[in-house]
């Protein structure tokens, strides 16, 4: 590794460090809007990515494709969560029957009390 390369890592780590500090500082404050949090997170990830591009730990072709992988995996995560959510969607068919019983009971009671609810 060249001296220059090493220097760049240092700068990069410092940058990351500052971003992490920034993150910690602001995430505990009301003033930081959520969009800023998300953008900060994205910036930190981008910095990491640029770092990887510079250092060539990964083959260059792969490193360039990382954002695509990231977006695709995010999409997969979303679809998976919706799919799992749909499959495990909690339903309660018995509640419909129970509610109807409660409604009949309530109607009976209200009729006895002389409250007119028939004309709806």
């Amino acid at each position: 590794m060249t001296v220059e390369g090493y220097f760049e890592i240092c700068v990069d780590q410092q940058e990351n460090y500052h971003q992490i500090r920034f993150w910690h500082y602001f995430s505990h404050h009301q003033s930081m809007k959520h969009i800023v949090k998300i953008l900060t997170l994205l910036m930190a990830i981008s910095a990491l990515w640029i770092g990887l591009l510079q250092t060539s730990i990964l083959p260059h072709g792969h490193a360039w494709l990382l954002p695509i992988y990231f977006i695709v995996s995010l999409g997969c995560y979303g679809l998976l969560m919706v799919g799992v959510g749909l499959m495990t969607f909690p339903t309660c068919p018995r509640e419909g029957v129970l509610l109807q019983q409660d409604i009949d009971e309530a109607k009976e009671h209200l009729k006895q009390k002389g409250i007119d609810i028939n004309s709806n």
Binding site: Y77, G78, M81, V82, G85, L86, F89, P90, T91, C92, P93, E95, G96
Partner: peptide, 27 residues
């Protein structure tokens, strides 16, 4: 959306939009 809870009377489309909206908001 937890154990012991649930919805009755929604069709597949309604469930799908609900889940999609929820995942989006959670993320």
């Amino acid at each position: 959306y937890v154990k012991g809870g649930g919805v009755h009377g929604w069709n597949l489309m309604r469930k799908l939009t609900s889940r999609g909206a929820n995942v989006l908001a959670q993320t």
